[in-house]
Design a protein around this nucleic acid. Structure first.
Lengths: 190, 190, 190, 190
DNA sequence: TATGAATGAGCGTTCATTCAT
DNA sequence: AATGAATGAACGCTCATTCAT
């Protein structure tokens, strides 16, 4: 076989394999032994790190949700106008999706699945809560369209996801910037 | 038990049951016997109409994709300005989603699943092709923003889906109209 | 394969196979597929009748415990002196064990196992309770040795089980009667 | 963790842990890693002393069978009347069972299990052989009831085991002596 | 034609045993 | 010599599909 990987790399190999298979085939369509094989470990090894297949899916979810959150949080430290904030978020999201297309696909398509546990959902909610506050302030300053901030967020995120799901990846900076402008037109105060 | 249903109603009962279960739990998480029970038929009966569970899923997909297409096609017969066309499409989609929330959820979340066959995908493509042509004309007339029409469609549809997935259903006519206006702002020529 | 057995015979075939394997190898050492194979059914079939391997073991236990109880109850209808009662019980037990050696082995060796549920244990207790009352009355009449009736029963049953476990089966009527007399000597008032 | 035990104590710790788990849960229900954990050693260590789980069970069996035999042999050095011999044996057995309840439970319930090897069975047989000779002599002298000595032994041992299995432990000396007398009544020449 | 009990391949998971450390 | 993480065969169980009725 391959030389034994040290434990943290083993864990990561399993999460990577799980991400690839879950995002491509779906949770219910992915056998645990397939994850093990792709990760280059024995099937039993997975159960040394997580208690169940569900737990693996939650670990994948939290791993990538956490990475994305960290990126966004870093980028937003010096917050400026809503326009600037949105531009930054859009590009962070876009670049993250380009770097980790499977992760983003997984995060989006498994968002509401029944095998995600409360902690995973709380993580998602936490991020949304922070951004909601930003939107609310922008609305108060007349920078963004009025209405339920959550709906605005859902629309913007939906537009982003829609583009990616339709297969438009690897666009030029120019094109990405134009799309960002289009989406901002949806969010901006009329 | 119940009086035997004639064949077409039997089929429909099966598709309804499958829709309910697939959209709520997912394809891989739905046993065929569960569909049969919900439909009030024997498990074997399903295999008289379709060859496999996959085929059932494809039948559900095509059934509802067809219904939605028909509605949109009807509504669009007398075509007018792009603004009007979008308004009509938005409301047809919204109303359809309110009437058949499970169907819309299923169409969206199962759009790219591996168990959908080429015919189902072609159906989706066919509808998109028609609308693409409309967008292209609108762009030529300067009514809509320039750029790849498919991306515009993906963004608009993504925004719609995003709103629904986030749980914003049962909104007032007023609210729905406002959302439509926001989305149009994303599509309109600047 | 073999022609399909009707359902009640299938169930019985499974219970028979389970009895044979559990009594010979033990519960933990018997794979479910082995039961299925011996019974001439598919492994999945077992789960149409019982929810788990544990349930099968309990069904086996109750099946045979019930049969033995029925036999004893029948035989004891016209109860007489304690001496007579014991003689009858001894022979019923002995004959039952000769007819169903695996069943008796199973009942004895699995008596206190952790996979038996409360209902099975209650069944065992119920039988003991009835006999205890008989012993108590015999003690009051001075026919049996004094002391905790449960201990007397445990000793008598233990002696019976000891003989069988040591492999002394197929004895002549004469021998069986002599053993009965020996055991009665242990129980009788001195 | 703890200071490394020298090899013989290590072995004993493993046998103790195995005894506790086998007697409580059964052989098939006891994982080797559970034995290792209870013994405070690594799972692999067990395989330095024994080749398999089966071998561990046999070692446990022989360890305790040997201890019991030794005790009985010591006590019986100056042999006397059969009555006296039985009294001594009964009390040695009883005291041994009170001191090592798990060991006695294990010896009894695992007596005929399929994972015991020939050597273990021979050990059991050897002890029985010696006692059989004693019984035979007692029968010749008219002290004990006639008949197959092995059956008499099986009955006496069975009665003993029956009492213990039924949960009657921790009895007073008086009670134990009375039970001994009852059992002797079964064995004595009429 | 419709049924649903039966099937057995394949699932998620466990655990006796191995072996790199 | 001892460890305990890793292994993968084998477990209990599920379920897509078949087929006797």
């Amino acid at each position: 076989m391959s030389p034994r990987l040290p434990s943290p790399e083993r864990q990561e190999a399993i999460l990577d394999a799980a991400l690839a298979l879950f995002s491509e085939r779906g949770f219910g369509e992915t056998p645990v032994p397939a994850i093990a094989e792709k990760a280059g470990v024995g099937a039993g090894t997975i159960y040394r790190y997580w208690e169940s297949k569900q737990d693996v899916a939650n670990a994948v979810y939290r791993h990538w949700k956490g990475k994305l959150h960290a990126r966004l949080t870093e980028a937003l430290v010096p917050l400026d106008s809503a326009r600037e904030i949105f531009r930054v978020m859009w590009h962070v999201n876009w670049n993250f999706a380009e770097e980790h297309p499977m992760a983003v696909k997984f995060l989006e398509t498994h968002h509401h699945e029944s095998y995600l546990d409360d902690e995973s959902r709380a993580m998602s909610e936490e991020g949304l809560g922070k951004i909601e506050a930003v939107v609310r302030r922008a609305q108060e300053r007349g920078e963004m369209a009025p209405g339920n901030p959550r709906i605005l967020l859902a629309m913007a995120n939906g537009a982003f996801v829609g583009i990616r799901k339709a297969g438009f990846v690897g666009l030029s900076d120019r094109e990405v910037a134009e799309l960002e402008e289009r989406v901002w037109a949806m969010l901006a105060a009329p």
